[in-house]
Design a protein around this nucleic acid. Structure first.
Lengths: 372, 372
DNA sequence: TTGAAAGCGCTAACAG
DNA sequence: CTGTTAGCGCTTTCAA
């Protein structure tokens, strides 16, 4: 019913190979022939059959994005970056939203199948043990975003450094007793952020006190939930009521920070006057709460990830690369020490501490090194 | 390098057709043969080549989701529903995030290409004029979500009815002077919600007053933005300051409502004591602001949309169907008349007015009719 | 510069 | 029940 290259060939009086060459801008075609063929193609409204192309060329021009759906806002912005770049590169995105990390292997299994995708973007989850060897063996191009594995490319967020900068900021504002609301201790981001927290204390000559680290009891999503934040904040307030002079707290994720804020509000503890609070991630909600936080350049990360994947697809022999992003402090209301009116004018009174120029900041706050 | 059905056939001592039958659970295969073939398949780690299957069967088992990315939260939840169902149906989702409606045609063009997808889920945007005929001609299965076109299936949100219910609620709370903060007047949702607003006034015998409809000046995204909400609220407050006894307002979208709330806060107008406010959509943010709103069952809509698409793919001769959802009132803090402490316990003190049972509500609030 | 022909790996008649 | 065969529509040698 719709035209194939055979139709075009017949109509233009040439062979199908020639038609194919014209369509794919192969140089070895006479100008006249090309023009004639293209004219016919237009006239017949020719459209290539995507699957036939894929089968013959063994290239799908498609990649999978495997994303933890539960982190909502985090990935929306990353997807936006990926989307734009994919359009430019002419790639299709097959989306795999994963409800919980345990289900990620289904998506991986699918992506490992022959003829499905040219590569994978894998987000914010550990690569299942069983799959790493299979991925390597099949030479499936993969880029880990917000994750790490020695065998594969990754875009890494320097959680430790970020937490360090965060706590440092609080201490520079004069806080001597800074607490940490953490995620589940076994989760990697929790550990890294805890390490950064300790780094900062050490740098400022403050002894680390285990009792000032508050981890949520609930373990769903490693405690990175509003409820987790509420729980931890309750405990923190209890400690505070008992006399611990905590005046500031770093919360390991914005989503927890939201819960923590609500809990503080409920206990009539004024933020930031009585307790300065700093989050981590800069999810979209943060802005609305006037939440000071450590921003991750999500959109840029998406673009970069796709570029990296593209490189790898075109040259599978590349050594694994690691690109690091350092989160940047975004000052709003909750950390105090600056514009206390941020809530009234969200977005206006934000201040980026590391850099004045927000637009150009990314390139300066990230550094790149390739290992191996 | 990796096994094909030829390898399996040779190894199992059968023909490739038999192998194919075994793999696809075709009934006409001897038990023994099947077992033997499957054993070989397992031994050789056989995996079908997706593209070869697609080409041969002229079925891609893939569909496109064309989504306006700018509406962020709206689509995240819908995607979740789609995602789950797609997994069950064994379908791949090709994501097309569209930055603005004008770019939707690129995604459509791509989806129209042969061999790309079996169908399309098209969200919250008008179908470009030029494409409707092409879609119909190519018999491309498509389901419009939050949209309508006589030729195609659609999942429709009863904006008019929703707005009616919203305003009715406000009036039942005793408000006599209810204003409307609308989107750009030319946008369909704006018109429908305006109509519902007028319906409610009429029902209550209140004359419609054009000067109580506030539309944003900015036209980006048809005014459905925080900024749009701020602008409109500023005008409303001005009118109020001049003596118009407005005591309640329906805001045509939650995202505008957020801006409106901020503006009211800034003007030191207490919500809901001085001004009751009701939003529309129930985006995720709403909960955090204690924003009363009209909820759309996004997740369910996603599931339903995919089911509908699935039906149509399997039977393209079906007449176009229309499924309607009626938004449901969710009472939180901003509309007054109920728990004023909602902000302290988000989620806990919500009340669904139409139905007590939240889980089972969807089936009761939607009705289905098929036209033609 | 061009065309014929051989796949890509699978599905689905059709004949046995 | 099973095997043979003909495609699906394109890309890509290989000769001419």
């Amino acid at each position: 019913m719709t035209a194939t290259i055979y139709d075009l060939a017949r109509e233009a009086g040439v062979g199908i190979a020639t038609v194919s060459r014209c369509l794919n801008n192969h140089p070895a075609v006479a100008r006249d022939t090309r023009r004639r063929v293209l004219a016919v193609a237009r006239r017949l409204h020719y459209q290539p059959h995507a699957n036939a192309q894929r089968l013959a060329s063994s290239r799908t021009n498609t990649f999978a994005a495997i994303i933890p759906f539960f982190t909502n806002y985090f990935f929306v912005q990353i997807l936006q970056g990926i989307q734009d770049r994919a359009l430019e590169l002419g790639l299709d995105i097959v989306l795999h939203g994963v409800a919980e990390p345990a289900h990620a292997d289904q998506a991986l299994a699918r992506s490992l199948q022959r003829g499905r995708v040219d590569g994978v973007l894998y987000f914010s989850m550990p690569v299942p043990e069983a799959y790493a060897p299979r991925i390597r063996q099949r030479r499936l191009p993969i880029v880990l975003v917000d994750g790490y594995h020695p065998w594969f490319d990754s875009i890494h967020i320097e959680n430790r450094r970020g937490a360090f900068l965060a706590v440092q900021h609080l201490m520079r504002l004069g806080h001597r007793t800074v607490a940490l609301i953490s995620g589940r201790p076994s989760a990697r981001p929790s550990q890294e952020r805890l390490a950064g927290y300790r780094d900062a204390l050490r740098t400022h000559g403050t002894p680390f006190d285990r009792s000032r680290v508050f981890a949520p009891r609930s373990t769903r999503l490693d405690g990175f939930t509003e409820e987790g934040g509420r729980e931890a904040m309750r405990e923190l307030l209890r400690a505070r009521a008992k006399g611990d002079p905590i005046t500031a707290v770093l919360v390991a994720s914005d989503i927890q920070a939201v819960g923590a804020l609500e809990e503080a509000d409920r206990a009539r503890v004024c933020i930031p006057e009585e307790l300065a609070l700093l989050g981590f991630d800069d999810i979209d909600l943060a802005r609305h709460f006037g939440l000071s936080t450590m921003r991750q350049p999500l959109l840029e990360m998406g673009v970069l990830a796709l570029n990296q994947l593209h490189h790898r697809i075109n040259d599978p022999t590349l050594p694994p690369s690691v690109v690091s992003f350092v989160p940047r402090l975004v000052v709003r209301r909750t950390c105090g020490g600056r514009s206390a009116t941020a809530l009234d004018h969200p977005g206006e009174s934000e201040a980026s501490v590391t850099l004045a120029d927000t637009a150009g900041a990314v390139s300066e706050t990230r550094f790149i090194h390739r290992s191996r």
